[in-house]
Amino acid sequence: MTGTEPEDDDALAAEYALGLLEPEAARAFEDRMATEPALRASYAFWAERLAAFTEDLPEEAPPPTTFEDIEDRLFPLHSKRRVSGFGSLRGVLFGGLAAAVLALAVIIWPQQAVTPDFRFDIADSDSFVAIGVGATRGGVFHLILGDEFVEPPEGRDYEMWLIAGDNPPVSLGLVPRGVRGDVWAELPPELTESFEGGVFAVSLEPEGGAPDGVPSEVLATAEIVTVG
């Protein structure tokens, strides 16, 4: 777009607000908006006025489960709904819940770069290889499953644990199956705070996670290193 006349920019802002620009032109407009307050104001003018069109639309409540679905996608490690579906809270938090959880977590990724405060790697053991893990104090948990990662045997799952000080191990959920690359999840910040100086462990469990909420067979451990 070459238009530099104020009028051209007003029309351009309207086209942008309406979604009429080709992707390349839209990006160019966004770049300009970042440095030109007048263009931002013109866009805001259009966005505000045009939003009045939505008053033509009859409002309707989404299905009652929608908010829970959103929470499951955003906060897979502590979904309210799944907790209520199981008898034992401990079994839920440290077993069945986790199973569903990290499998779901693959669909989530942060909108911006995350700088980990903690790193830990389990490079190799006899039966378990290659995962890298990072976390922030704010509760973002980042699991990296390399191409060389070996899936657990049929009917079994890998479960991740945090051992902080003298406390009993706390489950961080199951390693998702059939996934390679980056897996993001969200943990309660209270939990990631206690990563400092702790130990990360991976155990082999029956499918769905440790039945008693304690690790069955620890395969590998790693010191958690504070980097941030």
Binding site: L57, P58, E59, E60, I70
Partner: peptide, 15 residues
């Protein structure tokens, strides 16, 4: 926020 706005935003995605 969801409770206050979901019906409105759903009307938009539906349309």
């Amino acid at each position: 926020l969801y409770d206050a706005t979901a019906a409105k935003l759903f009307s938009v995605t539906l349309r």
